[in-house]
Amino acid sequence: MTDKPETKFEPVIIGFTCNWCSYRAADMAGTARMKYAPNVRLTRLMCSGRLDPTFVFKAFAGGADAVLVSGCHPGDCHYINQNYKAMRRFHLMKRVLVQMGIEPGRLKLLWASAAEGAMFAREVNSFVEEVRALGPLNWNSNHVHTADHVMSVVAEGHEHEAEVAA
């Protein structure tokens, strides 16, 4: 990342799509020549259920500023209901991110059917803007902290969780 003050921050976002709906939504956005921000780089999985949380954390650790997870709409999954499993993992990952001191807004879940190219493009744009507002993550260079700092982040995370639970 070059950090020139006059240039706008361009986040790098790693996106995970399923083979059947959301990857095809991206294809559809392309076929229809809908324009969106060039910040997202997609990885194709067969199903959003294939999303191992490790992938998400590795992406953050490797320098991604945000991660987009997308799959078929609930009820439309090519593998019957595996997108629900992705959804469960998504909520777990959000909690873990908070505990790690990463803004949960850096992880987004998007249901997109193969016909929703326009929606896909729109959502990518708004996500890029949201991440731009959050600023660079630089987790790969920032993730070494003193024990005190780590503990305070964890404590903060627990507080946040308590709020969520309430």
């Binding site: 991206a26 956005a29 392309g30 020549r33 809908m34 324009k35 060039p38 493009a121």
Partner: peptide, 13 residues
Amino acid sequence: VSIREQDSWVHTD
């Protein structure tokens, strides 16, 4: 790898 649907067709820059 898709540099058409995911890149040239959807970006102008």
